[in-house]
Design a binder for these strands. Structure first.
Lengths: 131, 131
DNA sequence: CAGAATCCATAAGGATACTG
DNA sequence: CAGTATCCTTATGGATTCTG
């Protein structure tokens, strides 16, 4: 048995550190404003070409999209398929590994939906008390 | 029945837009480098005072911690408790609303853990082929 | 102790133009 | 079409100092 000190109600510091580094890794590879959005679009709409993607992910610039796709490819979420011809056609598609994100995406999606409706009802209440 | 066009395999654009805005909201309030880390520490270690928190969330500066705590409070995740005295003591604790994040935290935690071990084994394989 | 204030460095990101 | 290059603005965040 290890020496048992304080903090019974809470997890050990080791567990906390483990969670922190797991979250750290997750944020590192799928964090930021765009990566999950790109993945969602590719999931819902299927493989897409560069300009289509840029249209579908509203607000993203070509420069940023290009950078994000490169990182997503490096991290194994996206595959870049090149079809020769004139002009060359490039398609981006999700890899099987990107499926490992489905739990994360689902959780974020339902939390975001819940949160938004909470905010909306708070604003309603505020408007009510303003009258 | 609405007019049925293309894209049978994939969700409608409306669904996609809904998911995008849900994710957008989520990223907006819990995104960034620090918010989830602070929440995790408060979950695992219980309520904490400012300087304790700064120690536990490694790498964060006082300025950034202060800003993040303010936003977390505004968004209803954290409560700031002030105990008068000399010196004044301030404690930060999670609200009940922060519990709504548990699914998100769990998903991110297990994905991050899985991803890290995947990376580790890839590095092992690479080291192997280098010999 | 719990921060706010200030200053500064770096990163992220938008706009526009350009190219094979 | 699929980006890249360049320039510029804004956001993020670290270090340090200061204060009630």
């Amino acid at each position: 048995m290890e020496t048992q000190v304080a903090e019974k109600r809470h997890a050990s510091s080791k567990e906390c550190a483990a969670r922190l580094s797991a979250i750290h890794d997750a944020i590192y590879v799928i964090g930021g404003k765009w990566k999950l959005k790109i993945i969602i679009v590719l999931r819902e709409e299927g493989s897409k070409r560069f300009n289509e993607l840029q249209r579908l992910v509203s607000g993203i610039s070509a420069r940023v999209l290009s950078n994000e796709l490169r990182e997503l490819e490096l991290n194994g979420f996206v595959r870049r398929k090149v079809f020769d011809g004139r002009p060359v056609i490039v398609e981006y598609e999700l890899t099987e590994y990107s499926d490992t994100l489905s739990e994360v995406l689902h959780a974020l999606n339902s939390w975001g939906t819940m949160h938004r409706s909470k905010i909306r009802s708070e604003m309603q209440a505020a408007a009510q008390s303003d009258k």
